[in-house]
Simulated assay, not measured.
Amino acid sequence: MDGPDVILRLSGVRKSYGAAAAVEGVDLAVLRGEFFTLLGPSGSGKTTTLRLIAGFERPDAGTIALDGADVARIPPFDRNINTVFQDYALFPHMTVAENVAYGLKAKGVRGAELRGRVEEALATVRMQDFGQRRPGQLSGGQRQRTGLARAIVNRPGLLLLDEPLGALDLKLRREMQFELKRIQEQVGITFLYVTHDQEEALSMSSRIAVFNRGRIEQVDAPRGLYDRPATAFVAGFVGTSTLLRRGGRRLVLRPEKIRLAPVRDGAALAGLHVETGRIEDNVFLGLFTRTLVRLDDGTLLDAVRPNDAAASPQGFGRGDTVRVGWDAAAAWALDGDG
């Protein structure tokens, strides 16, 4: 992937702390205007990669090219990059408008241009009515918006976001996922987002890089990662899945692809691959019920059923023997097994 559409390229990037390798040979290309996410568990290397791109750390090896120029040895303030942190790092003694204006003032912007750009940034994040408040008078979501306005007002080529929704409660975090995507599309800045939350990554991203132990396991669009995981790690980390071994192949089966039927109902699963098992547990989760089934070969299978009387057969209790069916095409083979 080359050309003017690539705003950021990492080639062979490595970073170690003593004997521990945090990032091991990362290659990555981010396209201009993308909402690109680095996804992975704690300690997988995603945040270290972000810090290397921002300039807070220097790589031991490899290149970091921004708009075609290697910036690996350039200090953070000389890169056309801004960063939004999880704690937002707002100045408590300044108003919202003063916080947003701070970076522009440091660059020498004054007068009508300064006021206009601050007003525009606040309007973009829907904070135009809160310019005279101080951070202590804001909710968590409003502080997050203020931090974002302070970053986008500088019009960087690349905006880095280090788990900025991590401090918010679940409901507000979900609301802000839609807001972040709206803002990114409105301003057109390339977002590089770091999270361990798969829902955040799937709901907002153009593409996602899944990190594990300092390496990238797979880069793909959200649907591609979910439907066609390249490795067992990706299959287990992105969404819920069951790993099966059938016919010498390793298969990934997503829970919504599985249908359950009583043993006595021979027609309910016609045309599907069918096995039998015993229900180990049912967990009510609001919109659906999660059912764990121990198949006859010992595999623990994870299925979900919508909580709709028309869609959910009754009588599936713990210990019941059931028939389990799925379309053969719904089972994705790992490692090129077929």
Rank of each mutant, 00 (worst) to 15 (best):
G3A: 14
G3Q: 12
G3R: 13
P4T: 15
P4N: 15
P4Y: 14
P4W: 12
D5L: 12
D5R: 15
D5P: 08
V6D: 14
V6W: 14
I7T: 04
I7M: 09
I7V: 15
I7E: 02
L8F: 10
L8T: 09
R9Q: 15
S11V: 00
S11F: 03
G12C: 07
G12Q: 08
G12R: 07
V13M: 06
R14S: 11
K15F: 11
K15S: 09
G18I: 11
A19K: 14
A19T: 15
A20P: 01
A22Q: 08
A22S: 09
A22Y: 03
A22N: 07
A22E: 04
E24K: 03
E24N: 06
V26L: 06
V26N: 00
D27C: 02
A29K: 02
A29C: 07
V30N: 05
V30C: 05
V30T: 04
R32Y: 08
G33V: 08
G33S: 11
G33M: 10
G33Q: 12
E34Y: 06
E34V: 07
E34D: 08
F36W: 06
F36R: 06
T37A: 01
T37W: 01
T37I: 01
T37Q: 02
T37H: 03
T37K: 01
L38W: 04
L38Q: 01
L39Y: 05
L39H: 04
L39Q: 00
G40W: 10
P41V: 00
S42V: 08
G43P: 06
G43T: 05
S44W: 04
